[in-house]
Amino acid sequence: MWDYYISLFLTVVMTGLSALLLLVSTVSSYRLRNTKLALISIAFTCFLVKGLILCLQMLFHFQIIQQNNIVLVFDLIIITALYFAAIKD
C-alpha cells in the first residue's frame, strides 16, 4: 500500500514540475523565437506526457508503461535539478 502512495506522490510531483517547466520553456521559445528553447519544450512535453500516463495508470488501474519507484526517483531528480537550474533563483 505504502509503495502505491510513494509512487503516486513521486509521479504527481514529477508531472507538476514538468508542467511548470513546459509552460516556462514554451513561453521562452515563443518570446525569443528560439529553436533550441523549442526543442527543450519538446523534452519537457515528453516528461509531462509520461507523468500524465503514469498518474492515469495509478488512478484507473491499467498499464501502458511499466515503471518502478527507483526509476521514478531518478526521473524526479532529473526534473528537480532542471527546475532549480533553470527557474529558481
Partner: peptide, 17 residues
C-alpha cells in the same frame, strides 16, 4: 512570476550554446 521565470530560463539555456 512567469516573466522572471522566463528570463532566468532563457538566460540559463542560451548560455549552453
Amino acid at each position: 512570476f512567469l516573466d522572471s521565470a522566463v528570463d532566468r530560463f532563457a538566460d540559463t539555456w542560451l548560455k549552453f550554446g
